[in-house]
Simulated assay, not measured.
Amino acid sequence: MLLLTFLFINHKVKSRFNKEYQVSVQTIPIPTDDASINLGKHIATIKGCGDCHGQNFSGQVVIDDPAIGFLAGPNITRGKGGLLSRHKTYTDEDYVRAIKHGIGQDNKTLKLMPSYEYNPLSKKDLGALIAYLKSLPPVDNETPPIRLNPLAYVLTHFDKLPLVAAERVDHSTQSQEEVLPEVSAAYGQYVAVSCTGCHRDNFQGGSAIVPGSPDVPNINSSGNLGKWSEAQFIQTLRTGITPEGKKMNAKFMPWKMTKEYTDTEIKSLYKFLKSLPG
């Protein structure tokens, strides 16, 4: 019975991996000026692109677990083992399809790519991000292929491991031209999309995202954040130490990423999260 159950799960998950998506890829203007590239670098930093792709974007191991398997963020520079080694060409449309939709050139889902966090980016921000990625110096590094063990299929089947990126994206969403940075709850909501991967869409947290990680805390007004002042919130996200004196593990709470938020971004995020009902 266990074998039959696993064979069923294995078949269902592989069919999800092999599903082809036909999406209308929005045309995003890609700038080339230094200011836009610097903006793209900032977006890549606060979105945590380096957490999977490595600080020089040549790829790095994300999961190496005997039960789950081996997953590495690929090299996305143009060095050996990078984009042009894996693909004959890589166009601006391919960047948009991967980042905004979580879909590869074969029209199948990318694995573990958090495109649901990038899908809402404005044209200006998405274009700047792609401009920065295209400007990266080539780095030679060939990451090993993904290897999934039985537990990975079981967890994916029950949606306990977010491997099927394309399923979590509203592919009909069209990017707006620009979102103006200003200290407001509305802009904070735009920034807070990066938090949903762990804290869920309602920001109330829940069970661990992957086995071995801790439960995810509630960060709306009914959680600890509801007791924190703006200054305490800023200190927490920039130092990794909460007002209660708890030092957060950067492996599970990316405070080394959030410390790079601008004052406008971090104050807006605080306003938005405080505005959420408990």
Rank of each mutant, 00 (worst) to 15 (best):
L3N: 14
T5V: 15
L7V: 12
N10E: 13
H11C: 10
H11F: 15
K12I: 09
V13W: 11
F17Y: 14
F17L: 14
Y21S: 14
Y21L: 14
V23L: 05
S24N: 14
V25G: 05
I28E: 06
D34V: 08
A35C: 04
L39P: 05
H42S: 12
H42K: 09
I43Y: 10
C49V: 02
G50R: 11
C52F: 06
N56P: 01
S58R: 06
Q60C: 13
D64S: 15
D64G: 10
A72F: 15
A72M: 10
N75H: 13
N75R: 11
L83A: 12
K88F: 06
D92G: 13
D92C: 03
D92V: 01
A98I: 00
I99T: 05
G104N: 06
D106L: 06
N107A: 11
L112H: 11
M113E: 08
M113R: 05
M113G: 03
Y116P: 00
N119K: 00
K123Y: 00
K124G: 06
D125Y: 09
D125C: 11
A128L: 00
L129E: 15
Y132T: 12
V139C: 08
D140P: 08
P145H: 07
P145M: 08
R147M: 09
R147C: 03
L151Q: 13
Y153Q: 08
V164T: 07
R168M: 09
V169E: 00
S175I: 02
E177P: 01
L180Y: 09
V183Y: 00
V183K: 00
Y190L: 06
C198H: 12
C198I: 14
H199D: 04
R200Q: 15
D201H: 07
N202D: 15
N202C: 05
G205N: 07
I209A: 10
I209W: 11
V210N: 09
G212A: 12
L225D: 02
K227D: 03
S229H: 04
S229P: 13
Q232G: 11
I234K: 12
I234Q: 08
R238D: 09
R238L: 11
G240R: 06
I241R: 07
T242Q: 07
G245A: 09
M248R: 06
N249Q: 12
M253L: 14
K256T: 12
K259Y: 00
K259R: 15
T262Q: 02
T262H: 01
T264N: 03
E265I: 08
I266V: 15
K267D: 14
Y270F: 15
Y270P: 13
F272S: 01
F272H: 00
